[in-house]
Simulated scan of single mutants.
Amino acid sequence: MVIADTHLLGSRNGHWVDKWRREWQMHRAFQTAITLHRPEVVFVLGDLFDEGKWCPEKEFNDYVERFHKLFKVPEGTKMHVVVGNHDIGFHYKITPSLAHRFEKKLDAPPVRLMSVRGNHFVLVNSMAMEGDGCRLCARAVNLIEKIADILKCSNGSPLCKSNMKVDNYSRPIIMQHYPLYRESDSICTEPDAAPLPERNSLFEERWDCLSKESTEYLVESLSPRAVFGAHTHHSCMVRHSFVPTSNHKIEFIEYTVPSFSWRNRLDPKYYLLTISPKEVKVSKCGLPREWTMQVTAVVMFCVLVVYLRFSSTAAHYGYKYLSGKKV
């Protein structure tokens, strides 16, 4: 199961009633989905928090505790998160303490390789793909180089430098917050893509998506078979074909996961993945529109009032009848 952009409110933005309402909605929707589908793994693609980049230590700890309560997973299901710009800030705003506390509290290093039943996932901090040689970026690149070498060795490449391997090699799946480089969402044709004219707005590299250079670096280093990102709050599916050399082509599909929050869109979504070492099947699941939920709540409240009134009247009539009083 893949969700993204939950954007839990902090103490600065939004009224407490709105915060409580939104969080209750997401909690119920998530728990219903978990109970219904029983996924083996849940990925959360960044922007868990709306104000993680601003809040002090105590507030951040409260944030983390709320997140785990709202998105609690049952025994047998594992959750993995990648960091988003609202969690620690855009690249130019990230401090070592902001990056460290998210990594420590959410167990989310800049880059991680994990395997599930012969399927390999690379989780990437998108803000560490700036390419400017900063400490965070250098660490991320170093980890990508090591993972790339492990995958090459596992695939039997003569170019690998170490003896480390994964069991049952298959091309990896990248999980990150930013989409890969694209000029805009104009190529997105899904019904839940960005609305017009927003869809035609040009993307700013390193702000709306990864830079073109970082995208090429990730793809050529890891040769993914699928990529999942978020950040835009809208849906998109892009078929990529990279040709690093004349005799080598890297083809894969990139999915941009819409926001799971009613604050960001009227119809939140989540993805269900069925994955084997040979294929990736993706199903998109929609949540009810907020208007539908509001109308349903009003109708149910009216039904409850009528029921209580009827029950009270019936009970009063029955009492008079049984007591022998003339009605």
Results as ranks from 00 to 15, higher is better:
117 R>P: 01
284 K>P: 00
167 D>C: 11
262 W>D: 06
125 N>E: 07
151 L>M: 14
218 L>I: 12
184 S>I: 10
78 K>P: 00
180 L>R: 12
75 E>R: 12
37 H>K: 11
227 V>Q: 07
183 E>L: 15
147 I>M: 11
211 S>L: 11
317 Y>R: 14
272 L>P: 02
59 E>L: 11
48 L>W: 01
324 G>K: 08
220 E>N: 14
35 T>N: 15
324 G>D: 04
218 L>N: 12
318 G>P: 01
279 E>L: 07
262 W>R: 10
235 S>P: 05
247 N>M: 08
191 P>Q: 07
282 V>H: 04
15 H>I: 08
50 D>E: 12
161 K>F: 09
276 S>I: 06
45 L>Y: 03
148 A>Q: 04
52 G>N: 06
102 F>A: 04
197 P>G: 02
158 P>T: 08
130 E>G: 07
103 E>N: 09
24 W>E: 15
322 L>V: 09
227 V>F: 07
151 L>I: 04
127 M>V: 07
26 M>D: 01
183 E>K: 14
154 S>Q: 10
88 I>W: 05
238 V>P: 05
95 T>A: 09
308 L>E: 15
326 K>A: 07
74 P>G: 03
150 I>T: 09
104 K>E: 08
70 L>N: 05
251 E>L: 06
58 K>G: 07
1 M>P: 05
87 D>Y: 02
304 L>V: 09
261 S>F: 02
208 D>H: 15
201 S>I: 08
220 E>L: 10
93 K>R: 14
162 S>R: 09
309 R>I: 14
146 K>C: 02
60 F>E: 02
245 T>M: 12
210 L>W: 08
249 K>E: 13
279 E>I: 02
90 F>V: 10
5 D>W: 01
268 P>V: 05
267 D>L: 11
270 Y>V: 03
321 Y>A: 13
184 S>Q: 12
84 G>N: 03
22 R>T: 12
231 H>R: 13
303 V>S: 13
289 R>A: 08
293 M>H: 10
221 S>I: 04
167 D>R: 13
185 D>W: 00
62 D>Q: 13
321 Y>C: 09
235 S>K: 09
12 R>Y: 14
17 V>A: 15
225 R>L: 00
268 P>Q: 10
217 Y>S: 07
127 M>R: 10
250 I>T: 03
162 S>E: 06
180 L>Q: 11
308 L>F: 13
192 D>S: 07
105 K>N: 05
38 R>Y: 01
292 T>H: 15
231 H>L: 09
121 F>W: 05
106 L>H: 00
285 C>N: 13
103 E>P: 02
71 F>Q: 01
277 P>S: 10
307 Y>L: 14
211 S>H: 10
72 K>Q: 03
163 N>W: 09
4 A>E: 04
157 S>H: 04
158 P>D: 10
77 T>K: 00
6 T>G: 01
120 H>Y: 08
122 V>M: 09
58 K>A: 12
244 P>H: 10
